[in-house]
């Protein structure tokens, strides 16, 4: 009876335990790494109906964000410009370029250009652009260096944890009102940013909501 199980069978329970432990760890790491907007959303760079380049318009030509996104300071929704905004220049400039085919078609038909939306908050989040850009939060904080993007991609995860990073410590991100739309402005150093941001927070009475009702209704 003494040799009913071979000798190696003594190690089987321990080995199985080790395998289970390794698999659990790998699974946990995998979920942590992949099940987050840092993986699912960041880098989303779809093709657009017209290859509009922010790098050309905003950086090279120096156009202000608000020429196209004209209601960002007064509305919760930052508008995608209508076709007439494009045509204000492109009725003359490069008017025959094939890159502008979608714009021209829209101008002639009166139907909107179907731009592909990149930054999407869930429908239970009520983000207000005006409340942010009028209080020293730059486009840069949420959209990244968009003035250098030839094709727009999502630069920030825009998850709730990410929102709270700023809502808990706005002084790390606040900038002078005059530089909100200047995406090339950056604080001289993190220390300078902190000193300036703390001052702005006090002066402008910045008190970002941390309660659920601040963003969810």
């Amino acid at each position: 009876m003494s040799n009913f199980f071979p000798r190696w069978a003594n190690w089987v329970p321990l080995k199985l335990l080790l395998i289970a432990a390794v698999l659990t760890t790998v699974l946990t790491l995998g979920v942590w790494y992949y099940f987050t907007p840092k993986y699912t959303r960041v880098g989303y760079m779809p093709d657009q109906p017209a290859p509009f380049s922010h790098a050309l318009h905003a950086e090279q030509l120096g156009m202000d964000c608000r020429y196209c996104h004209s209601f960002v300071e007064v509305s919760g929704h930052s508008n995608i410009p209508d076709t007439q905004t494009c045509m204000a220049c492109h009725s003359q400039i490069k008017s025959t370029s094939p890159k502008l085919a979608a714009v021209k078609a829209s101008w002639e038909s009166g139907l909107p250009i179907q731009w592909v939306r990149i930054h999407k908050a869930p429908d239970y989040v009520y983000f207000n652009h005006a409340a942010h850009v009028n209080r020293g939060v730059s486009c840069f904080s949420c959209h990244g260096q968009i003035n250098d993007m030839a094709t727009v991609w999502q630069a920030e995860p825009q998850s709730m944890a990410w929102c709270l990073e700023c809502h808990r410590a706005p002084e790390k991100f606040l900038r002078p009102q005059s530089e909100v739309f200047n995406l090339n402005w950056h604080a001289a150093s993190p220390a300078a940013q902190l000193a300036m941001g703390t001052q702005f927070k006090k002066e402008w009475n910045i008190n970002p909501p941390l309660t659920c009702g601040g963003c969810h209704r």
Partner: peptide, 12 residues
């Protein structure tokens, strides 16, 4: 993470 791609984001 952060790789550029054209596919719409997966919604978990």
């Amino acid at each position: 993470r952060g790789q550029k791609g054209k596919k719409p984001p997966i919604e978990i």
